[in-house]
Design a protein around this nucleic acid. Structure first.
Length: 598
DNA sequence: AGCACGCCGACT
DNA sequence: GTCGGCGTGCTC
């Protein structure tokens, strides 16, 4: 059936389709005719197969809109088939993917690959047969915080930095707070998304929700699930809620029905950085989604990052007053060399070990093993770090538990022991640790990174939050303003100071960065165009023909800079290609907001 | 990815 | 004139 010029097409006869292709030049909507036989199943959100005539093949895609007319030049092809009538791409998620891609000169289908799980035919068949599960209301008294969130408040907040008891087990204060907020949002009939950095944090949050009134409403989405479980949760999220969707960074894209608020724990944690193009962090996606949907947003963190503080200072986020409670931090005395453990710290560890576990935070996995070895748990090491070695030797007979990437411990039993953990792997102790020893601060601060000071403060603060009330937290070998901040717990003052420094230097988060890399002949003209939009070149690296130029620009110029970069990438996509025997030239690439400059 | 088209040099 | 190589641009 052909639609001759002038003939009125049947209503809903044209479908707009986003193609599943990483090519920037295919990153727009394509119009296709809907054959009458497929008219019942073609709806926004379904997966389809469509012809791409030039290549003489078909492409996968999603219908994002259905209409009566097309502005496309030439005549339209027919949709080849509907892969499945199950709606998997919610309109809200499509809009979000588009915005996330646009912010960083990326391709929307790259975002969709993160946001929509792979199809599981068996799951979808079962879904069609069984229908959506029954929605059950959540019976609870919503807190004032939840009430504010569902009306669209945007908040930056610090949690109570100590472990709390929830249903007979111990979780971080942050997990209890996020669980309470999510329960309240669900009790108001709205869905909540809670995104946390890693699997351990997710388990803690799940535990905090498991015995509460929203336990039946929890949908977990994370990488440890099978593809079938992931798709089931994805489909369930779209049914009438309320749902509490919990997960890692991809959860921020969940198609949660009637979304009331997005809650993000520890937005500055590197696990929130997406390693796939266009590399959007949980925080940036959450900010875009909040803006599009008007839902609430809560960014809860052990510390205040300069990035979030900037949003507070420009008035985008409200700053919720910090809880009065703070850990008992002991700084090293000035007269003790930084390489030695002060005698007061020795005494504190000895005293604490009489009553409960002591957490020792170290920088690297090897250091944890060294403490254990020195404590006589195994033959002595050859190159034991000095302080670590000393520590282990000082408490012979005390059980030592190592917690690092290889030895994963979510929580430990009560009772005296030394728990030596690399930063980020610290187990929860029931009731909290009797003392916390932050051993490797100097080495952590020596790392070269734009974010070292913020990272160290966050790692220390997170470990300090595992201490029991009144338990001492000893920072070894570090002075200066980061140490002082830990002791005074003036976390927002620290963030203000960081931000002021970055404003003076014109570095992130005061400005945004983009890195353009590829052959000089492609990079040079694009950089010139970005500069014309107000960007400024701040660094250039050149390794045999491949250059990488870093530019900075103001947030206000962001959308223009990204649009120009995208146009450049489209042009470069059709640049000269040598015949197969010749090696392909390095492609032109633009990466927005690289975590580290240059 | 792979195909069409058009610009330009070389030949009848 | 016109054949054809190859670089460019397009794919609803």
């Amino acid at each position: 059936m052909s639609d001759a010029a002038g003939a009125a097409p049947a209503p809903g006869a044209i479908a707009r389709v986003v193609l599943d292709s990483p090519l920037p030049r295919l990153d727009h909507l394509f119009d296709y005719r809907v054959p009458p036989a497929l008219a019942d199943e073609v709806r926004p959100g379904v997966r389809v197969k469509v012809p791409l005539r030039v290549a003489g093949r078909s492409a996968d895609g999603y219908v994002v809109d259905v209409g009566d007319t097309s502005d496309a030049p030439g005549r339209l092809s027919d949709i080849e088939k509907v892969v499945s009538p199950v709606v998997v791409l919610a309109p809200e998620v499509w809009r979000l993917a588009r915005a996330v891609a646009d912010r960083s000169a990326g391709v929307a289908s790259d975002v969709l690959r993160i946001a929509v799980p792979k199809r599981q035919a068996r799951v979808e068949h079962r879904w069609l047969k069984d229908g959506a599960p029954e929605a059950t209301p959540v019976e609870a008294e919503p807190s004032a915080a939840s009430e504010a969130l569902v009306t669209g408040s945007r908040l930056a907040a610090l949690p109570t930095p100590r472990p709390v008891e929830v249903a007979g087990t111990t979780v971080g204060g942050w997990a209890a707070e996020l669980a309470e907020a999510a329960v309240g949002i669900a009790a108001l009939g709205r869905s909540a998304i809670v995104a946390v950095p890693d699997r351990r944090d997710l388990d803690q949050l799940a535990l905090a929700l498991a015995h509460g009134p929203a336990a039946h409403a929890v949908l977990r989405v994370d990488a440890t699930q099978t593809p079938a479980e992931r798709e089931r949760a994805h489909l369930a999220a779209m049914t009438p809620g309320p749902h509490v969707v919990i997960g890692n960074r991809a959860a921020v894209y969940a198609p949660a029905a009637d979304l009331g608020a997005i809650l993000v724990w520890e937005e500055a944690d590197p696990f929130h950085l997406e390693p796939l193009a266009p590399y959007a962090s949980t925080r940036d996606v959450a900010l875009l989604r909040q803006e599009q949907s008007g839902c609430g947003l809560l960014l809860l963190g052990s510390t205040r990052s300069s990035t979030v503080q900037r949003l507070v200072r420009v008035g985008w986020l409200a700053d919720r007053p910090a809880p009065r409670y703070r850990p008992e931090v002991v700084l090293p005395p000035d007269d003790v060399p930084a390489t030695r453990i002060p005698s007061a710290t020795w005494r504190a560890v000895r005293t604490a070990l009489a009553t409960g576990p002591v957490l020792v935070q170290v920088a690297r996995p090897g250091d944890a093993a060294r403490v254990a070895l020195a404590a006589g748990q195994a033959p002595p090491p050859i190159d034991a770090g000095r302080t670590a070695h000393e520590l282990g030797r000082a408490f012979p007979g005390v059980p030592v538990l190592v917690a690092d990437g290889e030895h994963v411990h979510d929580r430990i039993e009560a009772g005296p022991r030394l728990v030596v953990a690399t930063r980020g792997a610290e187990p929860i102790a029931p009731g909290g640790y009797a003392a916390v020893l932050l051993l490797d601060g100097r080495r952590m601060l020596a790392r070269e990174s734009l974010w070292v000071e913020e990272d160290c403060l966050r790692w220390w603060a997170a470990a300090a939050a595992l201490a029991a009330p009144k338990a001492p937290v000893h920072l070894v070998g570090v002075g200066g303003h980061v140490a002082t901040t830990l002791a005074t717990w003036r976390l927002t003052d620290f963030a203000d100071r960081q931000l002021a420094d970055r404003r003076a230097l014109r570095f992130p988060p005061a400005v945004r960065l983009a890195a353009v890399s590829g052959p000089l002949a492609a990079v040079e003209p694009l950089v010139a165009e970005l500069v014309a939009e107000g960007a400024q070149e701040i660094g250039r690296a050149d390794e045999d023909g491949l250059v990488r130029v870093t530019v900075r620009f103001d947030y206000a110029a962001g959308s223009r800079v990204a649009a120009v970069a995208k146009a450049g990438l489209i042009r470069a996509g059709s640049a000269r290609r040598p015949k197969p025997p010749a090696p392909p030239p390095p492609a032109l690439r633009v990466r927005f907001d690289p975590h580290e400059p240059i």
